[in-house]
Amino acid sequence: MSAGSQTGIVGGIRYDVRRMHETWMELFFPRQFEASNSVLGKWEPQTAREKVTYNSWYYLGVPVIALLYPLVLTGYFLRFQTRRLDRTAMRLGTIGVAVLLLLFWGGLTAYARLQFTPAGFFAVAAASIVAIVASALGLLFRRVGGRVTTVVFAYPFAMTAIFLPPVVAALYSPTVADYVLPQSENIAIRLLNGPLAFVGLEEYLRRTYDLRGVAYAGMWFGIAVPVGWLLGILVTLADLVRPTADED
């Protein structure tokens, strides 16, 4: 039974939750996932011990699925956006995308050369180079294909193309720096006092690194990579729960 046979939002949610819970049960018990349409049917416990373990695992999966499903919904949204970008990139082709990036960032750099001070020009030029290289690498790894390659490399480079150019520009332009660098410091403090302190990295980072100059770029690259991994994992989770073919 595909998602297309479900009616409305409620039907789609029921379909997703059922698939997720069946997958959860399949981790330890045979013939649980979509077993109703199979010849053997769904496996059911026979002995008292099997019934206890089966029911315990069944009800343990309820809060787990409740926590995971909002992430799946987020993955659906992200997948929809990435599929739109993929289709656009496929229509343009690799060379077309490269030309489009060069025209956009090259035109922006040329405008900065005419309108801004030398510092402003170098800021835009440096940001343009970072954006073009990161975008090209993200597209390259996306073209290579494979779920692992896409999650590990393509998504982080795509996030780098978004996060890093303003920071690189701030290293050359005082005007941009006055806004970008204080905001970066605030984010760094929150990360150090929050998740990094929780995993025990706060003291090491404070002792080892000084947030100035190129360290800002390193910080944002360090943020872009796990954010890219997170987005890739969410899209992958959405693919596992409801493969793209079920949506067409």
Rank of each mutant, 00 (worst) to 15 (best):
A35V: 02
F77I: 12
L103A: 09
Q115E: 11
L40Y: 03
M90S: 09
P30V: 10
N37L: 11
Y59L: 14
K42H: 06
A131M: 04
W24R: 13
A98L: 13
F80A: 13
T53I: 10
L92Y: 05
R18I: 15
A66D: 01
A3H: 14
N37G: 10
P70H: 04
G138W: 01
M20N: 15
L108T: 08
G145T: 02
G146I: 03
R84K: 12
K51D: 01
R143T: 08
W24L: 13
G61C: 11
G106N: 04
L108D: 05
A126I: 05
L114F: 12
S135F: 00
S135Q: 01
Q115S: 09
L68F: 09
T23C: 09
R83V: 12
S135R: 00
A112F: 12
I13T: 13
V148D: 07
A134L: 03
R147W: 00
Y59C: 08
T82K: 02
M20P: 15
V144A: 04
V148F: 12
G120D: 08
M90L: 09
R143C: 03
A35T: 06
A112H: 08
V39K: 04
L27C: 03
Y69R: 06
Q46A: 10
V62W: 13
A125P: 07
D16H: 00
K42P: 03
F28C: 12
A136Q: 11
G93P: 05
M90Q: 09
R84G: 06
T150L: 05
W43S: 08
Q115D: 13
T53S: 13
F33I: 08
A98I: 06
R14Q: 14
F104A: 03
L92G: 01
Q115W: 11
I9A: 10
V64A: 14
G11F: 08
T94Y: 07
R143H: 05
L140R: 10
V97W: 02
V130G: 00
F33T: 07
R84D: 12
S56E: 01
E22F: 14
Q6F: 11
V144F: 04
E34P: 05
W43L: 05
W24D: 13
V72H: 11
L103R: 00
T47A: 12
L73M: 13
L140N: 04
V133D: 03
